[in-house]
Protein backbone atom coordinates (compact mmCIF):
# COMPACT_ATOMS: atom_id res chain seq x y z
CA UNK A 1 0.00 0.00 0.00
CA UNK A 2 1.57 3.23 -1.07
CA UNK A 3 0.87 6.36 0.91
CA UNK A 4 0.35 8.28 -2.29
CA UNK A 5 -3.29 8.42 -3.29
CA UNK A 6 -4.24 6.61 -6.46
CA UNK A 7 -7.42 8.61 -6.70
CA UNK A 8 -6.12 11.40 -8.85
CA UNK A 9 -9.26 12.26 -10.73
CA UNK A 10 -12.99 11.83 -10.76
CA UNK A 11 -14.19 8.46 -11.96
CA UNK A 12 -14.23 8.46 -15.77
CA UNK A 13 -17.88 7.78 -16.50
CA UNK A 14 -17.39 6.06 -19.86
CA UNK A 15 -14.76 3.68 -18.49
CA UNK A 16 -16.90 2.83 -15.47
CA UNK A 17 -19.87 2.11 -17.74
CA UNK A 18 -17.75 -0.14 -19.96
CA UNK A 19 -16.48 -1.97 -16.87
CA UNK A 20 -20.00 -2.58 -15.55
CA UNK A 21 -21.14 -3.91 -18.92
CA UNK A 22 -17.97 -6.02 -19.12
CA UNK A 23 -18.68 -7.75 -15.81
CA UNK A 24 -22.28 -8.39 -16.83
CA UNK A 25 -21.12 -9.86 -20.15
CA UNK A 26 -18.47 -11.92 -18.36
CA UNK A 27 -20.93 -13.53 -15.97
CA UNK A 28 -24.12 -13.68 -18.06
CA UNK A 29 -23.36 -16.96 -19.91
CA UNK A 30 -22.00 -18.58 -16.76
CA UNK A 31 -25.10 -17.57 -14.82
CA UNK A 32 -27.29 -18.96 -17.61
CA UNK A 33 -25.51 -22.33 -17.51
CA UNK A 34 -25.97 -22.56 -13.76
CA UNK A 35 -29.61 -21.37 -13.84
CA UNK A 36 -30.76 -23.74 -16.57
CA UNK A 37 -28.99 -26.67 -14.96
CA UNK A 38 -31.75 -26.42 -12.32
CA UNK A 39 -34.56 -26.09 -14.86
CA UNK A 40 -37.40 -28.57 -14.47
CA UNK A 41 -38.06 -28.74 -18.21
CA UNK A 42 -35.84 -29.44 -21.18
CA UNK A 43 -35.59 -25.84 -22.37
CA UNK A 44 -32.71 -23.40 -22.52
CA UNK A 45 -34.89 -20.31 -22.86
CA UNK A 46 -37.75 -20.74 -20.41
CA UNK A 47 -37.26 -21.46 -16.72
CA UNK A 48 -40.28 -23.40 -15.46
CA UNK A 49 -39.24 -24.31 -11.95
CA UNK A 50 -36.48 -25.63 -9.76
CA UNK A 51 -35.40 -29.23 -10.16
CA UNK A 52 -32.28 -31.33 -9.74
CA UNK A 53 -33.29 -33.90 -12.35
CA UNK A 54 -30.32 -33.07 -14.64
CA UNK A 55 -27.92 -33.65 -11.77
CA UNK A 56 -29.60 -36.98 -11.11
CA UNK A 57 -29.13 -37.81 -14.80
CA UNK A 58 -25.47 -36.90 -14.51
CA UNK A 59 -24.84 -38.97 -11.38
CA UNK A 60 -26.51 -42.00 -12.94
CA UNK A 61 -24.58 -41.70 -16.19
CA UNK A 62 -21.68 -44.06 -15.51
CA UNK A 63 -19.70 -42.76 -18.52
CA UNK A 64 -19.84 -39.15 -17.36
CA UNK A 65 -18.90 -40.02 -13.78
CA UNK A 66 -15.95 -42.10 -15.03
CA UNK A 67 -14.86 -39.13 -17.15
CA UNK A 68 -15.11 -36.76 -14.20
CA UNK A 69 -12.98 -39.07 -12.04
CA UNK A 70 -10.52 -39.50 -14.92
CA UNK A 71 -10.18 -35.73 -15.33
CA UNK A 72 -9.55 -35.22 -11.63
CA UNK A 73 -6.92 -37.98 -11.72
CA UNK A 74 -5.17 -36.53 -14.79
CA UNK A 75 -5.15 -33.07 -13.22
CA UNK A 76 -3.73 -34.34 -9.91
CA UNK A 77 -0.97 -36.46 -11.48
CA UNK A 78 -0.09 -33.67 -13.93
CA UNK A 79 0.08 -31.10 -11.14
CA UNK A 80 2.51 -33.26 -9.14
CA UNK A 81 4.59 -34.20 -12.18
CA UNK A 82 4.80 -30.65 -13.52
CA UNK A 83 5.58 -29.36 -10.03
CA UNK A 84 8.54 -31.73 -9.58
CA UNK A 85 9.99 -31.21 -13.06
CA UNK A 86 9.22 -27.48 -13.22
CA UNK A 87 10.79 -26.80 -9.82
CA UNK A 88 13.93 -28.77 -10.71
CA UNK A 89 14.16 -26.77 -13.90
CA UNK A 90 13.61 -23.43 -12.15
CA UNK A 91 16.24 -24.19 -9.48
CA UNK A 92 18.77 -25.37 -12.04
CA UNK A 93 18.18 -22.43 -14.38
CA UNK A 94 18.35 -19.81 -11.63
CA UNK A 95 21.83 -20.89 -10.57
CA UNK A 96 23.52 -22.06 -13.72
CA UNK A 97 25.22 -19.24 -15.61
CA UNK A 98 26.42 -20.97 -18.74
CA UNK A 99 25.15 -20.29 -22.23
CA UNK A 100 23.74 -23.81 -22.47
CA UNK A 101 21.75 -23.09 -19.35
CA UNK A 102 20.20 -20.01 -20.91
CA UNK A 103 19.43 -21.89 -24.13
CA UNK A 104 17.66 -24.59 -22.09
CA UNK A 105 15.76 -21.85 -20.30
CA UNK A 106 14.50 -20.38 -23.57
CA UNK A 107 13.49 -23.77 -25.00
CA UNK A 108 11.46 -24.66 -21.92
CA UNK A 109 9.37 -21.52 -22.38
CA UNK A 110 8.42 -22.48 -25.95
CA UNK A 111 5.21 -24.31 -24.97
CA UNK A 112 3.89 -21.01 -23.59
CA UNK A 113 4.05 -19.28 -26.97
CA UNK A 114 3.03 -22.29 -29.07
CA UNK A 115 -0.68 -22.41 -29.98
CA UNK A 116 -2.22 -25.34 -28.16
CA UNK A 117 -3.42 -26.98 -31.35
CA UNK A 118 0.22 -27.29 -32.49
CA UNK A 119 1.26 -28.89 -29.21
CA UNK A 120 -1.73 -31.21 -29.50
CA UNK A 121 -1.02 -32.28 -33.07
CA UNK A 122 2.67 -32.79 -32.27
CA UNK A 123 1.90 -34.90 -29.20
CA UNK A 124 -0.54 -37.03 -31.21
CA UNK A 125 2.11 -37.69 -33.87
CA UNK A 126 4.78 -38.46 -31.27
CA UNK A 127 2.66 -40.95 -29.33
CA UNK A 128 1.38 -42.80 -32.38
CA UNK A 129 4.85 -42.64 -33.94
CA UNK A 130 6.50 -44.47 -31.05
CA UNK A 131 3.59 -46.90 -30.86
CA UNK A 132 2.02 -45.73 -27.60
CA UNK A 133 -1.68 -46.52 -27.48
CA UNK A 134 -3.68 -43.33 -26.92
CA UNK A 135 -5.22 -43.38 -23.44
CA UNK A 136 -5.45 -41.35 -20.26
CA UNK A 137 -1.70 -41.99 -19.85
CA UNK A 138 -0.83 -40.19 -23.08
CA UNK A 139 -3.14 -37.31 -22.07
CA UNK A 140 -1.28 -37.03 -18.75
CA UNK A 141 2.15 -37.10 -20.42
CA UNK A 142 1.11 -34.31 -22.80
CA UNK A 143 -0.44 -32.24 -20.00
CA UNK A 144 2.71 -32.52 -17.85
CA UNK A 145 4.86 -31.39 -20.78
CA UNK A 146 2.58 -28.43 -21.37
CA UNK A 147 2.41 -27.41 -17.69
CA UNK A 148 6.11 -27.52 -16.77
CA UNK A 149 6.65 -24.03 -18.20
CA UNK A 150 3.95 -22.51 -15.94
CA UNK A 151 5.58 -23.93 -12.81
CA UNK A 152 9.04 -22.85 -13.97
CA UNK A 153 7.90 -19.26 -14.59
CA UNK A 154 6.20 -19.00 -11.19
CA UNK A 155 9.05 -20.61 -9.22
CA UNK A 156 11.72 -18.59 -11.01
CA UNK A 157 9.79 -15.43 -10.20
CA UNK A 158 9.81 -16.39 -6.54
CA UNK A 159 13.49 -17.39 -6.60
CA UNK A 160 14.47 -14.08 -8.19
CA UNK A 161 12.78 -12.23 -5.34
CA UNK A 162 14.56 -14.39 -2.77
CA UNK A 163 17.95 -13.64 -1.27
CA UNK A 164 20.59 -16.33 -1.77
CA UNK A 165 22.37 -15.26 1.39
CA UNK A 166 20.46 -17.60 3.67
CA UNK A 167 21.33 -20.56 1.51
CA UNK A 168 24.97 -19.43 1.48
CA UNK A 169 24.90 -19.11 5.27
CA UNK A 170 23.58 -22.65 5.54
CA UNK A 171 26.45 -23.85 3.44
CA UNK A 172 28.97 -21.90 5.55
CA UNK A 173 27.54 -23.74 8.54
CA UNK A 174 28.48 -27.01 6.91
CA UNK A 175 25.44 -28.01 4.89
CA UNK A 176 26.01 -29.78 1.59
CA UNK A 177 24.40 -27.97 -1.37
CA UNK A 178 21.63 -30.57 -1.35
CA UNK A 179 20.96 -30.06 2.37
CA UNK A 180 20.92 -26.28 1.92
CA UNK A 181 18.42 -26.68 -0.90
CA UNK A 182 16.22 -29.11 1.01
CA UNK A 183 16.33 -27.40 4.42
CA UNK A 184 16.44 -23.73 3.42
CA UNK A 185 15.38 -22.98 -0.14
CA UNK A 186 12.54 -25.46 -0.62
CA UNK A 187 10.64 -24.55 2.58
CA UNK A 188 10.70 -20.89 1.52
CA UNK A 189 9.23 -21.91 -1.83
CA UNK A 190 6.29 -23.83 -0.35
CA UNK A 191 3.66 -21.07 -0.84
CA UNK A 192 4.70 -20.50 -4.46
CA UNK A 193 4.74 -24.26 -5.08
CA UNK A 194 1.24 -24.72 -3.67
CA UNK A 195 -0.06 -21.85 -5.79
CA UNK A 196 1.59 -23.22 -8.91
CA UNK A 197 0.34 -26.75 -8.24
CA UNK A 198 -3.26 -25.59 -7.82
CA UNK A 199 -3.02 -23.43 -10.92
CA UNK A 200 -1.78 -26.38 -12.99
CA UNK A 201 -4.54 -28.57 -11.54
CA UNK A 202 -7.17 -26.04 -12.63
CA UNK A 203 -5.65 -25.58 -16.09
CA UNK A 204 -5.32 -29.31 -16.78
CA UNK A 205 -8.72 -30.19 -15.34
CA UNK A 206 -10.36 -27.77 -17.79
CA UNK A 207 -8.06 -28.35 -20.72
CA UNK A 208 -9.83 -29.47 -23.83
CA UNK A 209 -7.54 -29.06 -26.85
CA UNK A 210 -4.55 -31.12 -25.71
CA UNK A 211 -6.81 -33.81 -24.23
CA UNK A 212 -8.85 -33.92 -27.45
CA UNK A 213 -5.78 -34.78 -29.54
CA UNK A 214 -4.13 -37.23 -27.16
CA UNK A 215 -7.02 -39.20 -25.65
CA UNK A 216 -8.11 -42.70 -26.56
CA UNK A 217 -11.70 -43.76 -27.13
CA UNK A 218 -12.72 -44.75 -23.62
CA UNK A 219 -12.59 -43.51 -20.92
CA UNK A 220 -12.19 -39.92 -22.06
CA UNK A 221 -11.45 -36.80 -20.01
CA UNK A 222 -14.61 -34.86 -19.11
CA UNK A 223 -14.08 -31.85 -21.46
CA UNK A 224 -13.70 -34.23 -24.43
CA UNK A 225 -16.88 -36.09 -23.41
CA UNK A 226 -18.75 -32.80 -23.10
CA UNK A 227 -17.49 -31.67 -26.50
CA UNK A 228 -18.82 -34.75 -28.24
CA UNK A 229 -22.24 -34.38 -26.62
CA UNK A 230 -22.41 -30.66 -27.46
CA UNK A 231 -21.92 -31.52 -31.12
CA UNK A 232 -25.14 -33.49 -30.98
CA UNK A 233 -26.97 -30.40 -29.75
CA UNK A 234 -27.41 -28.55 -26.47
CA UNK A 235 -29.08 -30.31 -23.58
CA UNK A 236 -29.81 -29.33 -19.98
CA UNK A 237 -27.80 -32.36 -18.81
CA UNK A 238 -24.67 -30.68 -20.16
CA UNK A 239 -25.56 -27.63 -18.07
CA UNK A 240 -25.45 -29.77 -14.94
CA UNK A 241 -22.04 -31.23 -15.86
CA UNK A 242 -20.83 -27.76 -16.86
CA UNK A 243 -21.95 -26.32 -13.54
CA UNK A 244 -20.04 -29.02 -11.68
CA UNK A 245 -16.94 -28.28 -13.74
CA UNK A 246 -17.25 -24.52 -13.28
CA UNK A 247 -17.69 -24.83 -9.53
CA UNK A 248 -14.77 -27.26 -9.16
CA UNK A 249 -12.32 -25.21 -11.19
CA UNK A 250 -13.45 -21.91 -9.67
CA UNK A 251 -12.85 -23.39 -6.21
CA UNK A 252 -9.37 -24.58 -7.17
CA UNK A 253 -8.54 -21.21 -8.74
CA UNK A 254 -9.70 -19.35 -5.65
CA UNK A 255 -7.52 -21.67 -3.54
CA UNK A 256 -4.58 -21.03 -5.89
CA UNK A 257 -5.01 -17.30 -5.27
CA UNK A 258 -5.63 -17.51 -1.52
CA UNK A 259 -3.35 -20.30 -0.27
CA UNK A 260 -0.02 -18.53 -0.95
CA UNK A 261 -1.41 -15.50 0.91
CA UNK A 262 -1.89 -17.54 4.06
CA UNK A 263 1.88 -17.37 4.49
CA UNK A 264 1.51 -13.68 5.16
CA UNK A 265 3.56 -11.69 2.72
CA UNK A 266 2.37 -10.55 -0.65
CA UNK A 267 3.14 -13.59 -2.76
CA UNK A 268 -0.02 -14.98 -4.27
CA UNK A 269 -0.05 -16.51 -7.71
CA UNK A 270 -2.29 -13.60 -8.67
CA UNK A 271 0.73 -11.31 -8.48
CA UNK A 272 2.64 -13.77 -10.60
CA UNK A 273 -0.14 -13.89 -13.17
CA UNK A 274 -0.47 -10.13 -13.33
CA UNK A 275 3.29 -9.64 -13.18
CA UNK A 276 2.86 -7.10 -10.40
Amino acid sequence: MSARSRRVERRPAVAVAVTVVFFAWLYLPIAAVVLFSFNSVKSLSTFRGFSTRWYADFVHDADLVTSLVASIGIAAVSAVGALVLGTMLALGLSRIRSRTGRAVGAVTLLPLVTPEIVTGVAALLLFTGVGLKLSLVTVTLAEITFSIAYVTVIVRGRLAAMSTEVEEAARDLGCTPWQALRLVTLPTLVPALLGAGLLVFALVFDDFVLAFFTTGVSPQPLPVRIYSSIRFGVSPAINAVGTVMLVLSALVMVLALIVPRLWGRKSSSLDLITGA
Binding site: V234, G242, S249
Partner: peptide, 12 residues
Amino acid sequence: PFFASYLIRMYA
Protein backbone atom coordinates in the same frame (compact mmCIF):
# COMPACT_ATOMS: atom_id res chain seq x y z
CA PRO B 1 -14.00 -17.41 -14.65
CA PHE B 2 -11.33 -17.15 -17.34
CA PHE B 3 -9.46 -20.09 -15.97
CA ALA B 4 -12.68 -22.04 -15.58
CA SER B 5 -13.42 -24.23 -18.56
CA TYR B 6 -13.08 -22.44 -21.89
CA LEU B 7 -15.21 -25.16 -23.45
CA ILE B 8 -18.13 -24.70 -21.05
CA ARG B 9 -18.05 -20.94 -21.58
CA MET B 10 -18.16 -21.36 -25.35
CA TYR B 11 -21.00 -23.84 -24.94
CA ALA B 12 -22.81 -21.29 -22.76
